[in-house]
């Protein structure tokens, strides 16, 4: 498989960024629920033991405590796996965090299928939908380590709740390391078709765009890392200038980024949209990258879907 940059751990990027933020903001507090080694909050805990609370396996209470700390005027980061954050603690995120507009940043690692061998129980593919439905919640899904660093700084920089979804796996560097809330990043120019992707699928979008470029097709790639608020203007431009949109995500197609883009395009500048994501099923155990292939996110499948849209536009036979 073609890889674009050296794969790097987004979790490591998060851990290092937290330490930097902790140096700059002496009131910043971090919580974890017995997964600090895996989420990398352990680095903050070692550097600032007084401002780190590993609460054990009590995700709803970790989130409620984070809210209580934030209501005192602090920036609070809380981390665990995505399945436990968005899943186990949904009620606390809704009531204790969002309903208080508390300044809590949930950084959830191990989102999506790339959890791999631990299986479908742990592979939440519903979290983006759950989180973006919450009033006042900012939702971010970075595509690589450099943009993770920028995203962590960005979410720390405003007063209000945020959910950042990170994968377990290392991802190749695909961005220039910049990230702005509400902005989509155009990572590849194109005029025949746009592929909108988040997280691990951004690299696959770029691979497909490069492949299709070889045969003279011009495919734009947008990294929609800022899922909420999202860049309506960039989607409008993509629809107007490229005439069709393919959306890729490691998430159920029912409620994720594909659903978001389809409705935004329908209301903005209607053009054909196809969604490639996890169908309405749970995952299973397996090697992480082969799970993406198994659940319809292979580069071959993405290429076929792109081809269908290009054919409908009369760009190919």
């Amino acid at each position: 498989m073609t890889r674009l940059g050296t794969p790097e751990s987004l979790r490591d990027a998060y851990g290092a960024s937290l330490v930097e933020l902790g140096e700059r903001d002496p009131r910043l507090v971090v919580l974890d629920a017995d997964l600090s080694g895996s989420t990398r909050t352990v680095q903050f805990g070692q550097r600032f033991p007084d401002r780190f609370f590993n609460v054990g396996v009590m995700e709803p209470t970790m989130v409620a405590m984070a809210s209580g700390l934030a209501l005192g005027g602090r920036t609070v980061f809380a981390s665990t796996f995505a399945v436990f954050a968005a899943g186990q603690a949904y009620g606390a995120i809704r009531q204790s965090v969002c309903y208080n507009r508390a300044n809590v940043k949930l950084v959830a690692t191990h989102g999506g299928l790339l959890v791999g061998p631990d299986g479908g129980m742990q592979q939440i593919v519903e979290d983006i939908g759950l989180m973006r439905g919450l009033p006042g919640m900012t939702v971010v899904v970075p595509a690589d380590a450099p943009s993770t660093r920028a995203a962590v700084r960005e979410v720390a920089g405003f007063d209000g709740p945020a959910y950042v979804r990170l994968p377990r796996e290392r991802l190749p560097t695909v961005t220039d390391g910049s990230f702005r809330i509400g902005r989509a990043a155009e990572l590849h120019p194109g005029s025949d078709l746009t592929i909108v992707a988040v997280g691990a699928l951004v690299a696959r979008a770029l691979e497909v765009a490069a492949d299709l470029g070889q045969v003279g097709l011009s495919v734009r790639v947008l990294d929609l890392a800022s899922v909420k608020p999202f860049d309506q203007a960039a989607l409008d431009r993509a629809a107007r200038e490229t005439g069709a949109i393919l959306v890729l995500e490691e998430h159920t197609v029912l409620t994720g980024v594909g659903a978001l883009v389809a409705s935004a395009v329908a209301e903005g500048y209607p053009v054909p949209v196809r969604r490639v994501g996890v169908p309405d099923v749970f995952g299973e155990s397996g090697e992480p990258w082969s799970l993406l292939d198994r659940y319809g996110l292979s580069t071959e499948r993405i290429r076929e879907e792109a081809w269908e849209l290009l054919r409908a536009r009369g760009k190919v036979q």
Binding site: G68, L71, G72, N100
Partner: peptide, 16 residues
């Protein structure tokens, strides 16, 4: 959820 938030507030006071 109230006790959890109260615990957070009590920790906040202690830290400050």
């Amino acid at each position: 959820q109230g006790i959890g938030m109260a615990v957070g507030m009590a920790l906040d006071a202690r830290l400050a």
